[in-house]
Every structure is written in C-alpha cells, then in structure tokens.
Design a protein around this nucleic acid. Structure first.
Lengths: 329, 329
DNA sequence: TCAAAAGTGTTATCCTTACACCCATGT
DNA sequence: ACATGGGTGTAAGGATAACACTTTTGA
C-alpha cells in the first residue's frame, strides 16, 4: 500500500446574506478554540467538510450542514469560487493518518428573513463590520481618507500600486465601483492592513494557528481562516448580479413596497439610488406587479404593496435592477 | 490509524479557446484506454490531478500541466466552476489504498494563436463538433427543428419541460439566447440525448467505464467524462463575458482589422453582427486605437490596422463589446 | 469593369439622467 | 398645519437599431 502523501479535504463555506432594518447582514458562527474550548474572538462563516461518501452534491451537503449548524434553511444558493492557495487556506487539518490540505468551495445564499430560529453561537452580523469602507449610502466614508489612504501610503511605492489604490478606493476623483469588493480586500491584505495577512505570515513561519495580532485600529473586523475573503467574494458577486438578474427579490418578503425594495437594494449595493429612476427601471422590466392593497405602516402616506412575478423567471432570461445613482451629496 | 473512507482527488480541466479561420476551437486531447493502450474514440480536455504537496495554487498547477501535456503556454486564465456531483464525475480513480472521488475544477483560458507547437495527441477541435446547435451565424441551424425538437418531443411531457425546451432552443418564436450553452447541454443530457447520459447511467448500474453507446445520429460529439459539460460552461461564460469585459482581445493578435475582430466575436458568440453598429459600439468604448497602417491582404479594399489599448485595463473597469445582432435572414 | 470587402451618413426610437412637484397619512 | 414618506411629469441627451450608400483594392 502506497502512502498517500497529503490528503485533500474539501471545505464548504456559505455566505448567507439577508437585509435587516437597512443593513446587509451575513450569517456568522462564533467558534471555540478546539484545544481549550474557549470561545474565539473571531467570527467565521458557516462551514463544514464535504463527505465524499455521504454527499451526492456539494449543494446538498451545504444545505444539510448549514441547517444542522445554524437551524436555518437555505433558499437561493449559488457557487461562488473555489479557493485553493496554500497559505491562505485554513490551517492544515488533521485527518486520519496525517495532515490534509483544505480547499474551500464558497457558496452564496440569499434569504428574505434575517430573523429565524438560529442555533447557539450563530449570529447575523452586519457586513459593514467586516468592510466598513463599503457603505457609501451616506456619502463617502471618512474612513477611506482618514485611515485607508494614509496607511496605504508607504505600500504604494510603484505607479502600478498607486493606480490600483486610486481606482479601487476612488481616490482623487476616481469613481467608486461598488462591485470590486474582493479586489479592495485583497489590496488591503497585500498591504498588510488586514490582520489575516499577519496571521498567515506567522503560520508560514511555523507559529501554528496564531490569532491575528491587533493592528490599531483594524481596517474591518477580521474573520477566521480565509472567511473574510470568501465573504468579500460573495458581496462582490451579489452586487454585480443585482444588476443583471432579479436576485433582489430573494432578499425581500413576498409582498413589499417599492421603497422597501429600493432600501434592500441600497443596503446590498452600498449606494443611494434615485427614487423615480429606480422605479422607472423596475417598471420597464415588468418583474413586479402592484397588488392594489396598501401598507399603512410607513410613517407617511401609505404605500402600495407589490409582489415579484416569479413566473417570469421561467418565461425567459429575466434582467436585474437599474442602479441609477443618486448624485453625491 | 483510522481508515480514511474514500479519498478526494481534485482534477483540473482547462477549456482553452482560440479562433482559427472563422471558427472557435478548443484544445483537446486524444486519450488512450488505460488498460489496453488503444486510442479512445473520445476527445477530452487537457486535464490533470492537483497535487496538494507540490502545487501552491490551482492556477499554477493548471498552467504547469497544460504546458507539459500539450506544449502550450496559457495566457488569460479564469476559474469557471467546481463540479462535484456524484455520477457525473470521472469514474472513481484508484489512488493509493482505495477508490477516490474526483472533483473537477474547470478553468477557462483564451489565446490569440491556435497554431503552435502541440504535443502528440493534442488537437484543436471546432466547438461546433460538440455543440452543432450553437452556431447561428448562417441562420437558425436546421438541426434544431429537424433533430432536436422532434427527439425531445416525448421527453417534453410537462408544461415546465416544454417551456424550458421552447426557451432554450428558441422554438416557436422564442428568441435565441446565445449565453445559455450549459443549460441547453444539460437539457439534452437530462432528456437522454447526450450519449454521456447513457454512459453515466450504465456506470451507476455497475458496468464500469462503459463507453457511450451510439445513439443515431448523436447530438454533438460526446467527450470523455464530464468534459463536455465543462466545455459548455466555458463557452457560456465566454459568451457572457464578451459583453462586459474586453476579453475578445485575448483572442486576437496584437494588430487586427475591425472586421477580423468582428469575425472573432461572431465565431465565439455564434451570431452575426451588424457591422456599423458593432463599430460604433467599439468606438464608444475607446478600447481600440487605429494605427494608420493598412492591411492589404483582404481580398477587397485594404483595411486599417488597430490595436487594443491594453493600458486602459489598469485605468478603470473596462467594458466589453456591444453585440448588435444582424436581423435574422 | 466587376466582385469583394472596407468604411460612412442618417434617422426614429428608446433609455437614462436630471430636474421639480403633488399626494395621503399621522401627530 | 406640517412633517414624513409615497408617488408622478417632463424634457435634454445619449445609445440602439435599422435603413442604404460610397470607397478602394485585386482579378
């Protein structure tokens, strides 16, 4: 019998997104140190190993263990990306005879209801805690000019780096592109401004499983393993997809007002939209149907209730939302 | 020592696309039966196992073994999807002590030059051989109404199935959507019209490694393992990406005429485009620069040579091509 | 001189963006 | 009555889609 050198373990991670109040939140899990049993300070994504004997497909496996881990049933699910870089993965797990390399397959899941029975240690966490520079709804975040730009200054030693930095963080006049969440996170990681980078470096030097050192003040809360990277991938994908597929309706209840829908889209996209142009765009798509009933609880004039014409999904390739930006204040 | 039940093996597959003459072609490998050494009648994609000890990232691994297997160096590369369904994968490989489940990570690669030194058993194959219904440049393929529609007739026993069939294959008046390559292939697979489906079923019944039975006449040439599925994923992704990222230039030489560029886009998208509107769209993007020099070898009036302004990639999020359809003939 | 391919003008229509204004309810 | 959010009209500018036509070469 030959000795299999290093085994491969496939880890499945889920970015489960909902909108609560006016915030995009993700399902997160508080972890416990496997040695001491102490709760870790780091949050992680719902995560589980793929069992090549038991699981017929990745998606079924993912649904099963997210439900088991968080008592939460997934609705819309799509595969994001498979991460395999050495040094960015979870610490090598011990499996059977020896160490294993962990490959993570990330999934994006959407749900209209953030509030449901959750398992212990499962919490909804606002995405702004992990990516505070991604919310432009109340204008340009001060963090960018006050913390990010200055601390990137000495990393930005070449034209190429200065160019990327300018473009991704909308410095001196460059336009903000809300979709490039992953690239922004990766730039910060590369520049050493994500605590995960220091941790990964230390692990590479042999300090097994070191927790991230606090850089003061951290640019966004770090997560376990490569989960913040997967989360960034998910948010970026979702922001992009909003524009060309009707995924926003996976985040809203069955009946909603147009303002509610707009606020949901704004929470995810992290930008403010022009009310009337948003509505005109919606109308053009013919994705939505007025119900003739009103919702009185608005604080002002009652709003008409609408529903998503889900039947149109089977009737052709349905488009997404127009994102008519509101002029910067 | 615990007995690891079934091991996991990661396979990397590459969809390497180029345009030659006026046809989209993919790099394929002629395989030999591992038992008899006989050449198989089936083509496969360049494919190799991922080595968790040797390979730092998937992409590096992919580049390495494609070069080694085909003597071909990849340029543009992106990850497509990770396939893990049981029953659709390669037959369980024998690895070390026992059987292993094969997970395939598919990649898309683009190259401007189809003609280069290739390894033995490596050939460029036109995509229309695998997907003859995907080329609408000379109008609606007769195959659809003459072979596909009638042979789907008794599979289409429900409204849902009839609807999908109508939509995906543009039956009675539905518009053709060139991007949905994978869904079309999967529909044919589901309906049993892809020889791979019969093979997978037989394997499930225990007839190990059976080759696909000839259904007369086959709807597109089958491929090894799940490679036609990966190829369909790649072509669909590429057709979509053409429209919002400047990937067409990864398929053209450094200098090209606008007609050459248009023919390249047409070959990939499988549709004919309106010349002037295509050019106007290009002009708007500012992605291309006239060189003032002419190419005399056109068979008619000489055409101006252009180049892709690649520097614009670092200067912002560059758009793709407009695909102004030529009215159906 | 004619075929073949390159390259241009022009229009109706639709979509986007940007303005400013009115409506219905609760306090 | 007034604050709060819901909901509408209109017009300029740009993009698209559909016309048909001129130009320059090689055979």
């Amino acid at each position: 019998m030959s000795t299999p050198a290093t085994a491969v373990v496939i880890g499945l991670s889920a970015v489960v997104v909902a909108v609560r109040d006016r915030e995009a939140v993700a399902l997160t899990v508080r972890t416990h140190d496997p040695r001491t049993g102490e709760p870790s300070s780091l949050l992680g994504l719902p995560f589980g190993p793929f069992d090549p004997d038991g699981h017929r497909t990745f998606e079924l496996a993912l649904r099963a263990f997210v439900t088991q881990q968080t008592r939460f049933e997934l609705g819309y699910v799509e595969q994001l990306y498979t991460f395999g870089d050495r040094g960015r993965d979870a610490p090598r797990a011990d499996v059977g005879a020896g160490a294993a390399r962990v490959i993570s397959v990330g999934y994006l899941a959407l749900t209209p209801q953030a509030v449901r029975a959750l398992g212990p240690d499962t919490v909804w966490t606002p995405l702004t805690r992990f990516f505070p520079w991604e919310d432009w709804r109340r204008g340009r975040p001060a963090l960018i000019d006050e913390a990010i730009a200055p601390r990137l200054a000495d990393w930005a030693s070449t034209d190429e780096r200065r160019g990327r930095m300018r473009l991704l963080f909308a410095l001196d006049g460059a336009p903000w592109n809300e979709e490039r969440v992953l690239e922004r996170y990766e730039l910060l990681y590369e520049a050493g401004l994500a605590p995960e980078a220091g941790r990964d470096r230390e692990r590479a030097r042999g300090l097994a499983g070191a927790e991230p050192r606090a850089l003061s003040p951290a640019l966004g809360e770090p997560m376990l393993s490569d989960h913040r990277r997967i989360l960034a991938t998910g948010l970026g994908r979702l922001r992009g997809k909003l524009k060309y597929r009707p995924v926003a309706f996976e985040l809203t209840p069955a009946e909603f007002t147009l303002s509610q829908l707009q606020r949901t889209v704004e929470a995810v996209a992290g930008v403010s939209l022009h009310k009337q142009n948003f509505r005109r765009g919606l109308e053009r798509t013919d994705l939505v149907e007025g119900l003739g009933r009103l919702q009185p609880e608005t604080g002002g004039r009652p709003a008409e209730l609408f529903r998503f014409r889900r039947e149109r999904l089977s009737a052709g390739p349905a488009p997404g939302m127009a994102l008519p930006l509101l002029r910067e204040v």
